[in-house]
Design a binder for these strands. Structure first.
Lengths: 186, 186
DNA sequence: ATGATGAAACTAATGATATTAGTTTTGGAG
DNA sequence: CTCCAAAACTAATATCATTAGTTTCATCAT
């Protein structure tokens, strides 16, 4: 039994790589343990079972995504900020499909940390849309619509729901355009 | 061994009820067999394993959804048709969350029947948007954007991604409005 | 140096699942 | 009434998560 020196970040990193390469379904305690050259019960020294491992993946995904969005929106304002945010969101989902899926499938009921990180991400979007003079409920609705569009596109694209992948980037840009045109009319 | 007289439609119906009540994850051969008071290996007389069962759920979901959309769009034209389609889509996803999930998670690679039914559904949407004078690629993009919005909203709503469920219907209506405003400007 | 301690690995065992193989029963066609 | 194929069954295997209990070793206090 050589002492490997495994720690939580290394474990989550291995799981994240598996998720991004083969999908979240492929992340089992058995597969992660095999990748780390360890027996699966040993993982319980770092993580509280499969649900907890998935939760950590979601947390890592939220951290990464938030960081990407923050970086992309740096110094941008108005339409440029919205486009930057949207494109960074799409880029993240394409680069980290497994982590993206982990974010979506995380049950946020009662999980304070998860809710906080999730709220931080939404806050970034709220900020970008705050310049459009939307008042009260309209602002809330606009943020929800924006998120729906982004997530719907990413989700359909990943699942191959669009058929031929031709012109997907153009579709995405047009979607943002439609959104901006729409909310200016409100 | 009393002969139960189980057939494929009954089996799929039982699985669909389980899916809608407890989520697609809860649909296992074991759980379906228990609901039918049968041993799980017996299911192989009707279905070719769990993946095949999931496929049948997706097919049933597509049939139901397409029927709902067809009914809702009957005789409607223009904006009314788009609203009717969107609302029927949302209503279906709320009423049949398990079947909706089954549709999304179905791998359509190489499955002709699945692809055909999927195409039929998309065709219904194409029809509703054909009156807006979109030419060539623009029409393709518009359909994709519409589907992204619908799916994104439904998906986030189901997962609780919007936080408080307050005003979700208003958000949805505004989303359609934004879409229609946007594509008229093209 | 050395020895105790606790963390981190292990083995063993249990229970759920899907799946395959082979067996039994029975409803219905001839 | 007989036979047969379909539809149920039992038995067995493999994979997975999880729990319990065991061993080892790195580190820190002596």
């Amino acid at each position: 039994m050589p002492r490997i020196g495994l720690d939580l970040p290394t474990l989550i990193q291995a799981a994240a790589e598996l998720a991004d390469a083969q999908g979240l379904e492929a992340v089992t305690l058995a597969s992660v343990a095999q990748k780390l050259r360890i027996r699966s019960p040993s993982l319980y020294n770092h993580v509280n079972g499969l649900p907890d491992l998935r939760r950590h993946l979601a947390l890592k995904g939220l951290d990464l995504l938030t960081a990407e969005l923050n970086g992309a929106a740096q110094g941008q304002t108005g339409d440029a900020a919205v486009y930057a945010l949207a494109n960074a969101y799409l880029a993240f989902a394409r680069k980290h499909p497994g982590l993206y899926e982990a974010i979506q499938r995380a049950p946020d009921g009662g999980d304070e940390l998860l809710a906080a990180k999730s709220g931080e991400l939404v806050g970034r979007i709220v900020g970008a849309l705050s310049e459009y003079g939307l008042k009260g409920d309209a602002a809330l609705h606009a943020v929800r619509v924006f998120r729906s569009m982004l997530h719907g596109f990413v989700s359909l694209e990943r699942q191959g729901g669009f058929g031929l992948p031709l012109g997907l980037d153009a579709t995405f840009q047009m979607m943002i355009e439609i959104f901006l045109t729409g909310i200016r009319k409100l």
